[in-house]
Design a protein around this nucleic acid. Structure first.
Lengths: 212, 212
DNA sequence: CGTCGAATTGAAGTAATTCAAACTGTGTGG
DNA sequence: CCACACAGTTTGAATTACTTCAATTCGACG
């Protein structure tokens, strides 16, 4: 098949695409549940401030964090009637809460935005799957730090809102392995971990190389 | 916040949702590339017969298969201008090839279908991430066999189109571990592997229990 | 029946886990 | 203001699930 290039406007990047979402603000405390697995999904959320984790858990408690949601991110919109994932505030957080029906029952423009959002999340999830399936602990952590830096637009100093346990459950590792890997990256001079929530990226290029 | 249940029509399940897709049929041979990572994504595909793998690869060749696409499945629709994933026919396959623009530049109805498809894929990808991050080899393989059985509507006998290497790269394992795990599941009487492409599910309940 | 790629099996090695102890830093009460 | 408590983190030692490397064995096809 001849692949014939054709022109179309480059789509806006993931996080620029705006879904119209109107609702009330609500404050959540540390580790407070936003919604649980199996609940009806009648609401959609947008992070006004703070951070949220969405995750799936197995019966024996093993947890896989799907995503961390930071200020500006929309989350909690699922296809199914009931939730496949759960969500909790990581620290103090303020969320905009909107009715699901007000978001999905809209015009074609919003439908397109909806699709863009899902497609961007899907691409990110596939990248995450590659990390979980095929990368080493050091590669996972390096990738996580760079991803976080990019998302927050941080220069070199990162203030991580999440605990080591959260990072471990995001990266498919144990808390001990995450901790040891932080230590190792520091020993190699790639990062400077000043306190467990603050990290300075020293050698970004080497971190990048780690993730290929 | 009071969670007020509200009624809305249950959405059709993932694979029922039809995206209008018109295009020409094209035959692919074993392991033939459908598209590569980085290529422009001007086309969308639907499997008429056979099976396709989509995957991401790292610079050193490590591969993570994102999905297996079977008859009726649509794939290859990405948000970005360039492909983040690659696709290859697993065996002989016939695909319907449609222009991307003919799919995304449509009415609200199709936009909704587009979103449903992406949302369903996203839910599946998150489940996959849970598997890759948190499940053991036996749990992964049991889950894979059950997922395949459900998707193909097979009663007990499965005819797997993909090799052990494909399964390994889908499950984030090595080919040897997959092979050993097949042997182990057989030894425990959960499956009967008659030839490496044909599997009979004997104790579905126990397989289900393995995945929780 | 022989060939060749794919799959299985075996033995040794290793990255990450598990279990356990020590440390750190932050908030609290004396 | 210091000592204490405690939750989170780091470090250490032992274990293990999975990988790696190396032979076989299987099975499809000429």
């Amino acid at each position: 098949m001849a692949i014939i290039p054709e022109r179309y406007a480059p789509p806006p990047t993931a996080r620029e695409t705006e879904i119209r979402l109107v609702g009330a603000a609500r404050a959540y405390g540390r580790d407070q549940e936003v919604f649980g697995q199996g609940e009806r999904c009648d609401f959609v959320f947008k992070v006004a401030s703070g951070a949220v984790r969405t995750f799936r858990i197995l019966a024996d408690g093993r947890r896989q964090i799907s995503e961390f949601h930071l200020a500006g991110d929309i989350f909690g919109l699922e296809l199914d009637e009931h939730r496949h994932t759960a969500a909790e505030a990581i620290g103090e957080a303020v969320l905009i809460v909107a009715r699901r029906v007000s978001v999905i029952a809209e015009d074609a423009g919003n439908q397109t935005a909806l699709w863009r959002r899902a497609a961007a999340d899907l691409a990110a999830c596939r990248e995450h799957a590659l990390t979980l399936g095929r990368r080493s602990a050091a590669e996972r952590l390096a990738g996580f730090l760079l991803e976080f830096a990019e998302r927050t637009g941080a220069d070199a100093i990162l203030d991580l809102p999440m605990s080591r346990q959260d990072i471990a459950d995001y990266l498919g590792l144990t808390i001990e392995t995450v901790s040891r890997t932080f230590t190792a990256l520091q020993a190699e001079g790639l990062i400077d971990a000043r306190g467990c929530r603050r990290v300075r990226l020293i050698d970004r290029r080497s971190l990048q190389d780690l993730c290929e």
